[in-house]
Amino acid sequence: MREKKAMTQIDRRTEKLTTALRRAGVRITRQRAALLSVLAEAEDHPEAIELQRRAEAVVPGISLSTVYRTLTELEHQGVILRHQFEGTPARFEHSEARHHDHMIDVETGEVIEFANDRIEALQAEIAEAMGYEIVHHRLELYVRRKRAPGDPD
């Protein structure tokens, strides 16, 4: 009896992204398949241009317009999230990720994910005190590293 190869998290993500596009009637070309693979592997918050660069390294010939159309459809299907951080191009991440918030380093553009139970509880407490319940929220903190006294600017 042959054993089935266990699916990795990346395989599951790729399958989920592929299924979402097919459900929307989008044809899976070699270029799109490369993009979906790159998206599935991404653990950061890449911009569309960065996703195109990564996919081009795998299968040449993917246009930026194809990347944008594919990302838009994947967002409509609810399998990726678009983040529009202040002053930067849109960035993308998997929608399967556990809820988290973001800190954006204003000097480097680095996006740092974090989760904090105290913040979540405080937000719920504030909404409750005002007669509401939270349906959805997004917290973005724009930060810069502290400089020690005497550090150059």
Rank of each mutant, 00 (worst) to 15 (best):
M1G: 12
K5E: 08
A6F: 03
A6G: 03
A6M: 09
R13L: 06
T14L: 08
T14R: 07
E15Y: 05
L17K: 04
L17H: 15
T18Q: 04
T19I: 03
A20I: 01
R22P: 01
A24H: 03
G25Q: 02
V26Y: 00
R30N: 00
R30A: 01
Q31D: 00
A33R: 12
A33L: 08
A33D: 15
A34C: 01
L36C: 05
S37C: 04
V38F: 02
V38Y: 02
L39I: 10
L39C: 13
A40R: 04
E41A: 14
A42V: 06
A42M: 10
A42N: 09
E43Q: 14
E43R: 13
D44K: 08
D44V: 11
H45S: 11
A48W: 05
A48P: 09
A48K: 07
A48G: 13
E50S: 11
E50K: 11
L51F: 05
R53F: 11
R53A: 14
R54C: 01
A55W: 00
E56Y: 06
A57C: 03
V59R: 03
V59Y: 01
V59D: 02
V59N: 02
T66P: 02
T66M: 01
V67A: 03
V67G: 02
Y68A: 02
T70D: 01
T72I: 01
L74R: 00
L74W: 00
E75N: 13
E75G: 14
H76T: 05
G78Y: 09
G78M: 12
V79M: 05
R82H: 14
H83Q: 13
Q84S: 15
F85D: 12
F85E: 11
E86G: 07
G87R: 14
T88Y: 11
A90N: 12
R91A: 15
F92H: 12
F92Q: 02
H94D: 15
H94Y: 10
H94E: 13
E96W: 11
H99N: 09
H99G: 09
H99W: 12
H99C: 05
D101Q: 09
H102F: 09
H102P: 10
M103I: 00
M103V: 02
I104D: 06
I104S: 06
E107G: 07
G109P: 08
G109A: 08
G109R: 07
E110Q: 14
V111L: 02
I112T: 10
A115P: 01
N116H: 11
D117L: 10
E120G: 07
E120Y: 09
E120R: 14
E120S: 11
A121Y: 04
A121D: 08
L122R: 10
Q123V: 12
A124T: 10
E125D: 15
E128S: 14
A129Q: 13
A129I: 04
M130D: 08
G131V: 07
G131H: 07
E133F: 10
I134Q: 06
I134A: 05
V135N: 13
V135W: 06
V135P: 00
H136I: 12
H137A: 12
L139H: 11
E140M: 06
E140V: 15
L141D: 03
Y142C: 02
Y142N: 04
R144Q: 11
R144A: 11
R145S: 08
R147L: 13
R147V: 03
A148Q: 12
P149V: 03
G150C: 06
G150V: 10
D151H: 04
P152L: 05
